[in-house]
Design a protein around this nucleic acid. Sequence first.
DNA 1: GTGAAAGCGCTAACAC
DNA 2: GTGTTAGCGCTTTCAC
Lengths: 341, 341
Amino acid sequence: MRKQATIDDVAALAGLSIKTVSRVLNGEPNVRPQTRDRVLAAAGELDYYPNVSARRLASKRSFVIGLLYDDHDPASDYVIDLQDGALNVCRSVGYHLLIQPCRTETPDLVDEVIRLFRRSTVDGLILTQPLSDFDPLVTALFESEIVFVRVSQRACDGPCHCISVDDDRAARRMTDHLISLGHRRIGFVMGHPEHGSSHDRLAGFRSSLEAHDISPDSVPVEQGRYTFESGRACGHRLLALNPRPTAIFASNDHMAMGVITAAHERDLDVPRGVSVCGFDDAPMARYAWPPLTTVRQPVKQVARVATECLIDGLRGAGGRPTRHVLESELVIRESTAPLSQ
Amino acid sequence: MRKQATIDDVAALAGLSIKTVSRVLNGEPNVRPQTRDRVLAAAGELDYYPNVSARRLASKRSFVIGLLYDDHDPASDYVIDLQDGALNVCRSVGYHLLIQPCRTETPDLVDEVIRLFRRSTVDGLILTQPLSDFDPLVTALFESEIVFVRVSQRACDGPCHCISVDDDRAARRMTDHLISLGHRRIGFVMGHPEHGSSHDRLAGFRSSLEAHDISPDSVPVEQGRYTFESGRACGHRLLALNPRPTAIFASNDHMAMGVITAAHERDLDVPRGVSVCGFDDAPMARYAWPPLTTVRQPVKQVARVATECLIDGLRGAGGRPTRHVLESELVIRESTAPLSQ
DNA sequence: GTGAAAGCGCTAACAC
DNA sequence: GTGTTAGCGCTTTCAC
């Protein structure tokens, strides 16, 4: 393994001082373009790459950001996409990503996260749902003056960037779709009551109904918890109703799969007997039978934007807190069909 | 944010030199137990935690290990489990984990990985399948004298630890299960031909057949690629056969889901018309309809063992290369049933 | 067994 | 615009 060049080597080759090299490498002002080029040429020739540890030690910054997520069961696809989006940005700007799965239930979650900081291993954090809606944590971070961005629908009053997806609107459009197929008796399976997204999706559902003059009486709502099992239980309850809903909108794909299973267990064909749709476009949605109509969220892009905001903030380019709202996309597959007479 | 204590603070409080403190913290010999205790007490009182960057800079080690995995489509559950197992060990011994998704197809994959090292950000690597079977990479790592462990069935000739799962045996036991249900005409869907596991699983399948005196003629084998779509295509080919197989063993769950879809598309009930089983116990297997009979691999444990081996190796406790083989577990659900007459 | 001094490779503050 | 001088907090070498 060849020895890695140091900044001194570059300075020597360029015939400049070490500080000038440092300036160029850090994009600081007050460098003549011509000097700059000389430095870059020398660095290129030596295949020089700054030593991260030295840089960290001297600058007291770690160039690492932490990605916090809840590692609850059915989240792996979501998490992988988050990681992917964040990693892409990190790599392109020379940061590292520290992944930090955690559980909202952990009693000393807040302490743990704060300690991550105290140990100076992380410059800033990305909080994803549902952690980003967990008030004790958010409050503690503000108090500790830790830089972070939230991926969350919910507003927050502190000086922090928020990135969100328009769940409300997507749910409304999905409901519009069901109604356009002729369905008017639509069951709804709500997500985990403590996740902000559950309420947004329900709100979108309701606003579509309202716009179509459908009475709330014909739209039974069941409380799920975003898991397959809860979807299955809610599915059974909804399908036992008389009159039976002709369509069921589950707030995520896992619950939608549960609803489909419940339908199968009652020898009800999907979509002929009942249309079912989900939310999230988990990979399983494509492989289900029948393939699931759902909503595709731009998860990678959310992570990308969040990471960019955070790193900009760390670089001081920060400024006032911003709010980004990204759009989801309807994915119509075969689990929804026109109402059969 | 309170200022983090330094090693000097600890030394001062303990009334010892900084070097002695360092010795204790690094578990070096030549320290009197009593001195040791004094140091630990002082460190505890100050809530001291060594500064990672300083330690890295001075020791030229990063205390970071890299987890390399292929980020191919249907792998997210596997990857999350790998990360989880590795993270647990890392945290308990004070290492960090750098995740590095990559694609075998990337032309300069090898260069990229080597560079990870040159830039001194990683002390060692964990290679997971199918990367761990990718010869150009493995060879390059040996040549660069980079410390790594492989998660792979395949043996390798270099001085490196290997952690594997006994796919061969698991496939044999699964086939035994099908035969015990009365099936003798069993279709097999092979995995990606370049993944070592594909061949192991096929071998296990064959050895069971042999043990039961079943002629190879009655067991059609189709070549898949571990994806849902390939499973679906192979499923159609197998189900079009005359006589039709009464059971199909797919080499992973995604392909098994594809086979089930193919069966549905031919109005064939699973398991009454055809039994189907998979491999891996992906979460989707539990949520499928019918729930899928499959093989559960101890992925987290594999990652844990791999991480422990690697870190031991880095600490010099290394020694000769070891080989760990972990056992999988059959998960019998409802997609397999006794042969109906 | 323990300690003193000399860096690791970089950035920060200030001088020029 | 550019260079000089000190550290950052730790590990290492070698002396005691």
